[in-house]
Amino acid sequence: MGTEVVAGGAREEMLRRIRAANGHATDDAAVVETQWNALPRGYKRAGTLGREAKLELLEERLRDYDASVTRARTGAVAAEIARILKERGKRRTVVPQGLAEALGEALPEGFEFVADEGMTTAELDGFEGVVTASTVAIAETGTIVLQNVPGQGRRAPTLVPDYHLCVVRAGDVVETVPEAMARLEATAKLATTFISGPSATADIEMTRIKGVHGPRFLDVILAE
């Protein structure tokens, strides 16, 4: 195709122009690595808070985003899920595969949890909510990170329904963004979503309102 030919020429020309602008071509990965390693990183990387202070900070920051947070002991997470779903009036939710294993508990009775096996968007749109686990949470920013692994699953199910209940294990809570990125490094190529509170917008007169498209309601269970 014509486009392909043009594109091929474009690649070489752009690289040539970059090299001319820089006055050199970079082809030695070792040199680049040495220079990258020497970049100044004087910012805070490791957190300083104790365990409880860290959890409290996460709770505070999540609430700041209008998410609601409760705590549950390990073994009582399923019961907390049941309590919250009942209170929210959610009966039929979609869940990723492997959620029970990820939580280490069977899902509570009396609700319909439908496992996502590649549902269509229209099917997902019919659910009242979604329940997932999480990979890591960042206290300083009130962020929960989901990846495409068992218990968290594909991205669409946590997006289309209007309600998200997310379980965060206390051991997965870190204080800083760099700590979180270090944890994610090994699985960096998986589809990854950072969620900081429910969907929101401030596009109209800078008034923060529960937003437009993602789940407008986010509940978080902190499992210890």
């Binding site: 985003y65 590649g118 594909r154 991205r155 589809a191 979503t193 900081s196 509170g197 993602g214």
Partner: peptide, 19 residues
Amino acid sequence: RMNPYNSIWTGVDKTAAGD
């Protein structure tokens, strides 16, 4: 402190369910 959503993805997911 952080915007509501950041997405990071790499190429395409070739598994059957597809993400």
